[in-house]
Write a protein that binds this DNA or RNA. Sequence first.
DNA 1: TAGGAGGTTGGAGTGCACTCCAGGCAAGCG
DNA 2: CGCTTGCCTGGAGTGCACTCCAACCTCCTA
Lengths: 154, 154
Amino acid sequence: MIPSSPAPAAGPAGRGTGPSEPRHPRPDGRDRYTIGEVASLTGLTAHTLRWYERIGLMPHVDRSHTGQRRFSNRDLDWLAFVAKLRLTGMPVADMVAYAEMVRVGEETVDARRALLERTREDTAARIAELRDTLAVLDRKIAYYHDAVAASGKD
Amino acid sequence: MIPSSPAPAAGPAGRGTGPSEPRHPRPDGRDRYTIGEVASLTGLTAHTLRWYERIGLMPHVDRSHTGQRRFSNRDLDWLAFVAKLRLTGMPVADMVAYAEMVRVGEETVDARRALLERTREDTAARIAELRDTLAVLDRKIAYYHDAVAASGKD
DNA sequence: TAGGAGGTTGGAGTGCACTCCAGGCAAGCG
DNA sequence: CGCTTGCCTGGAGTGCACTCCAACCTCCTA
């Protein structure tokens, strides 16, 4: 439950900027992927990739001479970062706002950092909640384990 | 982002069964709460509580002589447990299935334990994912922190 | 006993994040 | 050349989990 990155997601990233992350296994030396290739690399559908672009969550993707999309490694990095943000439960609208700030440039750096810091706190809180939940589940499972014969229990 | 339990959620529980959990702070010795009281105790809306009952996620709630709902401490325990399951991302349909199994009785104990164990694994995996995400966020925040003057970054 | 807060119902509406459709263009293979 | 497979677009549709509506009833306090 909750779609966790299914395909060989392209490692941590952030559109080639940020702390110099190790470039993770990508097919080969290429830098122009079709939408279908990106779909299987990221686990997203082609539909979703087009939709991301339409709503402004993808910076302008390059096109072939006939108008087909050609994604770059930079685009893959960005998508990997977006996948991380998605995991935190951040609404797509907020991610679009972040993407927009990136597009605007330097003067939004503080706002971007603030957004990430808020997200960081949310994520830490969520981890704590889940740990708590795990404890509850463990207690309940243990209970089922050695009280199998009792009746009317949940 | 992600509605985390807002109101004084009534502690961990499981409809009074399971490992004997400490009975958490409840208003007082009462055992008959109106829907509004339960709403503010759980952080759910009255609408949602009625909806839970309609779809079979609540065992039959007691009624006053005039037909108004009167929730018991047992009901609050169950709601607290449901809140935990909700935190794991379990679909409501699965929770309804669990509730149904509880209603059926003893012969579903194995299936219930299996469901909880699957949920437990999902939750543990989710925690790992989030930890990873936290690391990515931390790196990016640190980057923003000491590379504020660089341009065109995300 | 009057008024306002809060309770009841079935069914319709909302917001989010996709997901799919129809109709057409393009690329590579035998 | 024909065929299959893949990509293009705008717009409509889907599934989930609520959320609200209208019309009415009940409880409690002044």
